[in-house]
Write a protein that binds this DNA or RNA. Structure first.
Length: 491
RNA sequence: GCUCCGGUAGUGUAGUUCGGCCAAUCAUUCCGGCCUUUCGAGCCGAAGACUCGGGUUCAAAUCCCGACCGGAGCACCA
């Protein structure tokens, strides 16, 4: 009873239940065109689809919709990138399908539709057809007999027509009130080789998305489709195919556009060009919204999953800030990241009367993870930013070392003031971090540019881990050598 | 031009299906305070929204109509 009263108010966490979802029977797919690496945008499709499949103990399929060798030409490496990134995200597919391997299957159904009189080969120019279509008028080829259409189709397949000479259209309803639905094209001629060597120049006739997707969704047994709002019309179009073939259409869900504040509009093709021109270092340049870049920067897959799942499936277009993703990541990373000193734009400070000693700052302020050891003589390095705040007489605390008082600015010198930590606040002493003069050079690559400086030698033990450079931010240690390269994660 | 979809705080999101329990959820952001040998974390507090106008109703964020705003489709792209 009491539970009843309280339950109504409880907010539903996670994804909402799927309509008509039978546990164990749900089949969903993520269908990218591998014409570039996965980005944060694609990630939504990977995470949400795979999460639903997990919820219902179903089957998750990745299907490469790579049926355009020309305009949105697939990139050979990207097939593997998608699989890698899916695995990283904890969304290992139960099945992988490549559309360009299954062209004969599409031909089979095309033939069936032609024989039924539900598809016809159209020789209109696209402009002419559009005019007729917009006026709800059938084109002259609409009434061609199935026999003749079949003959034309065979010629298409044999390469006897050139690109743009002919297309195969589905007969829908030329009077349909929505012009987007009327007799749309399902196959066109593209005489260009496919990037996959297995396919290469095998085909002259390629299916268009609505056809390829419709056939595959049925063949794969897809029960639920989640796709962008921009493909809402696809459902209306594809239902004609399903009707003609006597199939049952999957349940659909749509989401709006997702845009990240920090990344303006970008398309895979413009990014690709910018990379080729050297504007970016590669697809994992920390300034890019690709998953590879996120991974390199130390954004953890769990954070991305949570971020995407919390966003849910809404038809509203969303424009979201990376801060939210960073907040999720910080929650995960903060308790496990070891702390280190990294001094950018270093300036040397000499403590005239200092005795050598070994500083032992904790690896973590709250977790009991041990200490790091830094040997200090009579000189340390400070950040230029901090030094600029100093005047002769400034008293500062060198974090986890000792207190000093500035005695000279140029050269920068100080005198030892004691180890006492109790009165720092009372004396309003600023606590600043430092680095040993024999530290290791560190370069940090961040979306805002590069930071160069010196860090503790022990950072070299953290390869591939996310650490926190105190008073700087979290970073992933990318490579270790004479110089350490780190990728900035977030504050 | 034709067609479709959406509009809850700065940003996401819950609630909209089957009107009342919504003076509206949660998170993030921002601000204030506490704590802390990091400008991190933690703790406490505060601010902040139903696009507008009509209608139906005892009662509307929720239903209807209109306007406005935003997005999308009408490709031989995906």
């Amino acid at each position: 009873m009491i539970e009843n009263l309280c339950s109504k108010k409880e907010p539903v966490k996670g994804l909402k239940p799927l309509e008509d979802a039978q546990p164990g029977k749900v089949i969903m797919r993520f269908a990218p065109n591998p014409n570039g690496p996965p980005t944060l945008g694609s990630t939504r499709g990977i995470v949400v689809n795979s999460e639903y499949v997990k919820m219902y103990n179903g089957k998750f399929i990745i299907r490469f919709d790579d049926t355009d060798p020309q305009t949105k030409r697939p990139m050979l490496e990207a097939y593997a990138w998608y699989l890698e990134d899916c695995e990283w995200l904890g969304a290992v597919p139960d099945q992988v399908v490549i559309a360009s391997d299954r062209i004969p299957l599409y031909y089979k159904y095309a033939r069936q539709l032609i024989e039924q009189g539900n598809a016809y080969v159209c020789f209109c120019s696209s402009e002419d057809f559009k005019k007729l279509k917009d006026a709800s008028k059938p084109c002259p080829h609409r009434n061609t007999s199935p026999q003749d259409n079949l003959a034309h189709w065979e010629k298409m397949l044999a390469g006897e027509y050139e690109a743009k000479d002919a297309v195969l259209r589905l007969k829908t309803d030329i009077m349909h009130k929505d012009p987007a639905i009327r007799d749309y094209g399902i196959f066109r001629i593209v005489k260009q080789s496919h990037p996959r060597p297995e396919v290469d120049e095998k085909y002259f006739v390629w299916p268009l998305l609505d056809f390829e997707g419709a056939i595959e969704d049925h063949e794969l047994g897809t029960t639920h489709i989640i796709r962008g709002k921009d493909l809402m019309d696809s459902e209306k179009r594809q239902k004609y195919i399903y009707k003609y073939l006597g199939w049952q259409y999957p349940k659909t869900l749509h989401w709006g556009r997702i845009k990240m504040h920090e990344f303006g509009k970008f398309s895979t093709s413009t990014l690709r060009r910018a990379i080729e021109e050297g504007e970016y270092s590669g697809w994992d340049d920390p300034r890019l919204p690709t998953l590879r870049a996120m991974r390199r920067r130390g954004i953890l897959p769990q954070a991305i999953r949570k971020f995407m799942i919390d966003m849910g499936v809404g038809e509203t277009d969303v424009s979201i800030s990376m801060d939210t993703l960073y907040a999720e990541n910080r929650k995960i990373v903060d308790p496990i990241a070891n702390r280190y000193f990294f001094v950018w734009d270093p300036v040397e400070l000499t403590i005239n009367d200092a005795k050598p000693r070994t500083a032992r700052p904790p690896l973590h302020p709250t977790e009991n993870k041990g200490y790091r050891c830094i040997n200090v003589g009579d000189r340390v390095l400070l950040c230029k930013d901090d030094v600029e705040q100093l005047t002769v007489g400034s008293r500062i605390r060198l974090k986890d070392l000792y207190n000093v008082e500035i005695t000279s600015l140029a050269p920068l010198q100080a005198k030892y003031l004691g180890d006492e930590v109790a009165n720092l606040k009372k004396e309003r002493m600023k606590i600043i971090h430092w680095a040993p003069i024999d530290g290791i050079p560190v370069k940090v690559l961040s979306p805002e540019g590069e930071f160069k400086g010196i860090g503790e030698k022990q950072i070299a033990t953290e390869l591939d881990k996310v650490v926190q450079f105190e008073r700087f931010g979290f970073c992933r240690i990318d490579s270790v050598g004479a110089e350490i390269v780190a990728y900035f994660t977030h504050k």
